[in-house]
């Protein structure tokens, strides 16, 4: 019996001693909730397309976008200083985060003197061990306000309006590489060419390669022609491709880029890109966004 007691004593004492600082720390650090993956992209826009990112709650972003003229070809070259004399589109806009998930925005484009309203909603956020992708919904309506180029170009006010919706599925594969696939649908009220389609499915994709903490290579591409839009129209249309660099400095994000799309918002560039990378239709462009926090300070 005494032996038994002795054994019991050692058993119990070892159990208790092994429950030391390190093992108790490990036990307390067991975390049931997986971490959310943040900052898949630095900005709510890549080159041409929207990313899955939205504004943070109470953050107001001021956007300035610019597209210059053709670098080469008939309209480029030294006569226009490789397109720098020309502005094919200018965009000014504000995006505001109502919550961390919901963003609304308003903007104005030089092209067609159009005004747009947009909304973005973060549906899912990628987790480190759990949900594999982030999913954001994007919707945008655009209203053309310019005068008619010819009589009865826009018989009704509603013919000036187009709608665009996109599902953005993004994944941060590593801290330096993120990729997204953006299926979308564009609805227009009328088209110039009767062969052209008013409504079309499109498929966008884009990626980011971070070279340093604040400096990234970005690119995106949208498959339009031959997918939702007929590819045998009299006027030749091209698929928009943009490549650029992105620099983040605290509250600013700068993007310097090259693209064949002459216009800035989806409703404009998706159906109207008539320039190609091959014949000098590429142009320089940039976007600057500045974030302002306009909420109350948390105590």
């Amino acid at each position: 019996m005494n032996k038994l007691l002795l054994i019991a004593f050692f058993l119990f004492s070892t159990v208790c001693i092994s429950q030391d600082v390190d093992s108790l720390m490990n036990e307390l650090a067991q975390d049931s909730r997986p971490d959310r993956v943040i900052a898949t992209f630095k900005s709510t826009k890549l080159v041409l397309l929207q990313t899955n990112e939205t504004q943070k709650k109470n953050d107001l972003a001021f956007w300035v976008g610019h597209r210059f003229g053709d670098i080469g070809g008939e309209f480029g070259g030294s006569n226009t200083l490789y397109g720098l004399d020309v502005a094919t589109d200018l965009y000014l806009g504000f995006d505001y985060g109502i919550t961390d998930e919901l963003t609304i925005g308003i903007g104005r484009s030089k092209f067609n003197e159009s005004y747009n309203l947009l909304a973005k909603y973060k549906l899912l956020q990628q987790e480190e061990a759990g949900i594999p992708v982030s999913v954001t919904l994007f919707g945008q309506s655009n209203w053309i306000t310019r005068e008619e180029f010819q009589n009865n170009e826009f018989p009704n006010q509603s013919d000036r309006i187009s709608h665009f919706a996109q599902i953005i599925i993004a994944r941060k594969f590593s801290s330096s590489f993120s990729f997204m696939i953006n299926p979308g649908f564009l609805a227009r009220s009328q088209v110039m060419d009767p062969e052209d389609s008013e409504n079309m499915f499109v498929l966008g994709m884009g990626g980011r390669l971070k070279l340093t903490k604040r400096f990234s290579l970005i690119a995106d591409y949208t498959w339009v022609n031959g997918l939702g839009k007929p590819s045998n129209l009299d006027t030749k249309y091209y698929n928009p491709l943009g490549i650029g660099i992105e620099i983040e400095t605290g509250g600013h994000v700068f993007s310097l880029n090259f693209q064949n799309a002459p216009y800035i918002i989806e409703n404009n560039f998706i159906p109207n890109t008539q320039k190609s990378w091959e014949d000098g239709g590429v142009r320089f462009g940039f976007a600057i966004s500045r974030n302002f926090y306009i909420g109350k300070k948390r105590p």
Binding site: M25, I38, A39, K56, D59, R214
Partner: peptide
């Protein structure tokens, strides 16, 4: 020990930069 991503900032963008940059 403390997990870095449990720190809460006044500005959410600052919190993202703190974790990310």
């Amino acid at each position: 020990q403390v997990k870095i991503n449990t720190f809460q900032f006044e500005k959410a963008l600052m919190q993202e930069h703190f974790n990310e940059n």
